[in-house]
Design a protein around this nucleic acid. Structure first.
Length: 358
DNA sequence: TTTTCCCGCCATCCT
DNA sequence: AGGATGGCGGGAAAA
């Protein structure tokens, strides 16, 4: 069979031992896509997907939740999702953008109570026990956040992978920063001060999300321009302008379907494993990332003045915006700041970015 | 070592 | 009750 070994770059691969790479969420998502990204697909059954892809149900939930957040899928019923395809992504992103801008803007007058939640939150630190924290308080979040009814135990939803995904995407879509590291994200999506434990967990989730978003080519992993710290760059719908009917996602790469690609994930347990049969697959090579080398954060007009300083300022302002977006408590301060910042020292920060880039 | 992040236990949310 | 969902974090493969 196609024996393109799991990794072209693995000459010394003795007897393949357990490899996380072939079990990654990203790969699973890619396989999921090659399996269902077709016009004649309507509904997708979770069990069916799980067995076809050779993974346990649990993993399907993981990718399905983020795919749904971006519009590629829509939950139809129990165990059933409908395929929307990449054609639905632009709209979903647009909505996320509006939603994000809206509810950080509608924080206008809220001085009465101190804490508000829009992005995400958790409970108080340290014990405290008993007595449910929130509840009674008159939440001011007007609509937007989807769920119309605030079910009591709906507290769970607030930590869902889906919500996290949407908020993560909002960070990119609502600001002009297109490069951000996961722990910055975690910090932004969480209040700044938090248990390292909470943070760690949040980052774990972000890794999961980032992997499938990467598979979708909505983001790409790189490194911060200055530091070597890994970070993710927003790609959005690349090579998709106008629109012409259909869809298409494939930015470049006009390859048709990938025949012979084994879409099934071999199921080796995490420990040892025999050597019978090869489990290759590796459907097509990754795809050349050829996003040119864009320098630092966002484009910005090519100034030739204090390049370095300007870049730093930009980066700073971007982070500041993100922080503000994620921290509704600072509504008032935010307004003042934006008012004074906009169109001046931070020209590229004008909130109403306009033109939906994506 | 640190960074990634898979695995699957088990709490929750539906039927 | 029983099945569908999906937090959550241990701990091991990858840098």
């Amino acid at each position: 069979m196609a024996l393109s070994y799991s990794d072209i770059i693995n000459p010394s691969s003795k007897h393949h031992t357990y490899s996380r790479k072939q079990k990654s969420l990203g790969l699973l998502c890619t396989n999921f896509l090659t399996l269902y990204n077709r016009d004649d697909i309507d509904v997708i059954g979770l069990d069916e997907a799980a067995s076809k892809l050779g993974v346990e149900r649990r993993r399907i939930y993981d990718i399905v939740n983020v795919l749904e957040s971006v519009g590629v899928l829509a939950r139809k019923a129990k165990n059933k999702y409908s395929w929307k395809g990449f054609a639905a992504v632009p709209k979903a992103l647009q909505e996320l953008k509006e939603e994000g801008l809206r509810d950080n803007v509608n924080a206008i007058d809220k001085q009465s109570n101190n804490s508000a939640k829009v992005v995400d939150d958790d409970e108080d630190e340290d014990d405290d026990s008993d007595s449910n924290p929130n509840t009674g308080s008159q939440n001011e979040n007007y609509g937007i956040i989807k769920s119309t009814a605030a079910s009591r135990a709906d507290h769970r939803r607030e930590k869902s992978l889906g919500l996290l995904t949407r908020n993560f995407v909002k960070l990119f879509v609502c600001s002009n920063a297109n490069l951000i590291s996961l722990d910055e994200s975690a910090k932004l999506l969480l209040g700044d001060g938090h248990n390292s434990s909470i943070m760690r967990t949040k980052v774990r989730r972000l890794y999961d999300i980032a992997n499938v978003l990467s598979s979708l080519k909505l983001i790409e992993k790189t490194h911060a321009a200055d530091t070597r710290k890994p970070a993710f760059r927003w790609l959005g719908l690349r090579g998709k302008s106008e629109n012409g009917s259909g869809d298409p996602l494939a930015p470049l790469e006009s390859r048709k379907r990938t025949f012979g690609a084994d879409v099934t994930n071999i199921s080796f347990k995490r420990s040892k494993l025999d050597s019978s049969v090869d489990g290759d697959k590796s459907q097509s090579l990754k795809m050349q990332k050829q996003i040119k080398d864009e320098k630092i954060v966002t484009v910005a007009e090519r100034g030739n003045v204090d390049q370095g300083f300007t870049a730093e300022l930009r980066k700073l302002s971007s982070l500041a915006l993100l922080l503000l977006l994620a921290w509704p408590k600072l509504a008032t301060l935010k307004k003042k700041l934006l008012r004074s910042m906009t169109g001046r020292v931070f020209p590229l920060l004008s909130v109403h970015n306009t033109t939906t880039k994506l």
